[in-house]
Design a protein around this nucleic acid. Structure first.
Lengths: 244, 244
DNA sequence: GGAATTATTGACTGGTGAGTCAGTAACCTT
DNA sequence: AAGGTTACTGACTCACCAGTCAATAATTCC
């Protein structure tokens, strides 16, 4: 009977390809480099992938698919937090989950960030998806009287996405995972103050939320496990497991 | 006697190279494409540049040099605004000047954004320069009691730079120059609210600055010409004039 | 018009690397 | 052990393109 494919071959190629693409970009990466590092042959590479670009696209598309399961739209939630302290806790959890995911996939994030020319659409797809979801949250917050509705939701989404994008960039360039939760607490406080309606701000002050207490690690991440999600099926095209 | 060099040849090559590099990145750009569009020969290209990469670096370094003259550190200013309304006006002018400069040089900005692999240092240099200047302003604002000094200046600089970076990105992807001043007014209001000390916020409220009035175009850009700068020599390596 | 000199040209060279494919290895069945 | 089938190998092909350089053009002076 026939030879059985090596089950780890494609995984090794994808993992190594991710690293080489992250370092050098699609055009700077050599198939020879990928296959040498993965201890496979070029023939094996072309057995699993149509082309170098095909491999690149598979990595990025798998990542984008999993991102959709991490960064969810308001309509994917059955219930939403009502009180001031719950709102803060809710956002810290979501933000930390998102940054944790990006940290675990920082090679792919670097790959996506480097997409240009005829692969620019992949970076565009990533940004558009994140922006759209962020905007949906902004519009809901405005509708619920938590965020200043005179502000352009498009502009607010731009600013918030840009700020978090740069946070992510700073995180990824660190050799070790930095104190993300600390960063997120200050960031959330700034945006709540900058965007929140007087109603929300009063509620947050009453709950002493914008001071150190509720934003403290002990009252946030200790109680609720990070990465808990609900209501949506897990990613179907997760080829590369996240790793540290 | 000898043949006189064509004075416009290098300019044409630089201008066209900028466009091709912006579209396809350094590695995707072909010298043949550049020279054909510029109506020059490859020999002429190599007469003016050591290599394709040399041309790329000349464009980016000239841009970074001019950026230093646009986005100045606090210590480059003789006087700084004191009152609430003056602070707002000051920042709107500076922000508009910066975005105007980036708009005029949007091809180069796209080039820089695409730097990766062994050219990543150019993007790093750009980001570091902007970040460092932003952080200097943040620290001065904190020292002058205008900005919450409990906040990490590094984090604030990260968030502000990230937000404005994304604004810039949105602007650049527009076929026509969008209403930058409108964007900047809302952005500045959000960050002043998010970061300002109670003292500054009271002063701004007293001057009705965070409402539509002082942020109105008629009281800002009409009085003070944009792009006015002082005290620092103009860029020495400005090869490519800015254009629309 | 010819000479001397410098600028410019674009056919050409040589290196690179994506992708191919004939040969070999690994598997199971007979 | 041999046969049939599929996975895998890595030398090889060939297209591509950065960079070169012999030939030509353009200039001024005599």
């Amino acid at each position: 009977m026939a030879r059985i494919p090596d089950p780890t071959a494609k995984i090794a190629l994808l993992r190594t390809a991710t690293d080489v693409f992250a370092e050098r970009g699609l055009e700077g990466a050599k198939v020879e480099d990928i296959t040498r590092r993965a201890r496979q042959s070029k023939g094996a590479f072309y057995l699993h992938f149509q082309s170098k670009e095909d491999a690149f696209r598979q990595v990025v598309e798998a990542f984008l698919a999993r991102l959709a399961d991490i960064y969810k739209s308001p309509k994917d939630f059955e219930t939403l937090p009502a009180s001031g302290a719950e709102v803060v806790r809710f956002w810290l959890e979501r933000d930390e989950q998102m940054l944790e995911f990006l940290w675990q996939n920082r090679s792919v994030v670097t790959m996506v960030a480097g997409c240009q020319g005829q692969n620019a659409y992949l970076l565009d797809a990533f940004r558009l998806e994140v922006r759209r979801t962020c905007r949906a949250w902004v519009e809901l917050s405005q509708k619920r009287g938590m965020m200043d509705s005179k502000l352009s939701s498009e502009l607010v989404a731009t600013l918030v996405c840009g700020a978090y994008d740069e946070l992510c960039r700073q995180m990824i360039r660190s050799p070790r995972k930095p104190p993300i939760l600390d960063w997120l607490r200050q960031t959330l406080a700034i945006f709540l103050r900058g965007l929140g309606t007087p109603t929300l701000l009063r509620a947050l002050d009453r709950a002493h939320v914008l001071q150190a207490r509720v934003l403290d690690a002990k009252t946030t991440s200790a109680k609720t496990p990070v990465n808990r999600s609900r209501g949506v099926a897990v990613s179907r095209r997760s080829l590369r497991p996240t790793y540290e």
